[in-house]
Computed example of a mutant assay.
Amino acid sequence: MAKTQLNVRVEEGTARAARERALAQGVSVNRYIEDLVRRDAGEQGRTFVDAAADFMKQYESVFAEEFGTDTEGRRRPVE
């Protein structure tokens, strides 16, 4: 995958913490920041899926009443 340069300005304490944490993990600061962003983006995806699952659980009876289910809880075909 192609790389692009991203310049950011952060407080010195933030930069120091990033350097220290990258060193502790044995990775470059670039890799450390890239991993943080990937984890954050993934977390948002998980948050969405979790919220959708909660919604479905909360309204399970409404869906079952509206669409019906088979004996294993799956939606029955519309007749």
Rank of each mutant, 00 (worst) to 15 (best):
A22E: 00
A22M: 03
A22V: 00
A22K: 00
L23R: 08
L23Q: 05
L23V: 01
A24E: 03
Q25C: 08
Q25L: 13
Q25E: 15
G26Q: 06
G26M: 02
G26F: 00
G26S: 08
S28L: 03
V29M: 06
R31G: 04
Y32K: 01
Y32F: 14
Y32H: 12
Y32V: 02
Y32I: 02
I33N: 01
I33G: 01
E34W: 06
E34H: 10
D35Y: 08
L36T: 06
V37K: 08
V37M: 15
R38D: 10
R38T: 12
R38K: 14
R38V: 12
R39W: 10
R39H: 15
R39F: 10
D40E: 13
D40M: 08
A41D: 11
A41H: 07
G42E: 09
Q44I: 13
Q44H: 12
G45Q: 15
G45A: 15
G45L: 12
G45P: 04
R46M: 14
T47L: 15
T47D: 15
T47N: 13
T47W: 13
F48L: 15
F48S: 07
V49L: 08
V49W: 06
D50T: 12
A52M: 14
A52P: 03
A52V: 12
A53K: 13
A53T: 08
D54G: 13
D54T: 10
F55Y: 15
F55H: 15
K57N: 06
K57Q: 03
K57T: 09
Q58C: 09
Y59R: 07
Y59W: 12
Y59C: 03
Y59G: 01
Y59L: 07
E60K: 00
S61Q: 12
S61W: 02
V62K: 06
V62P: 00
A64I: 02
A64Y: 01
E65W: 05
E66I: 09
E66N: 05
F67Q: 11
G68T: 10
G68M: 12
T69W: 10
T69E: 14
D70I: 04
D70T: 03
D70M: 05
D70K: 04
T71V: 06
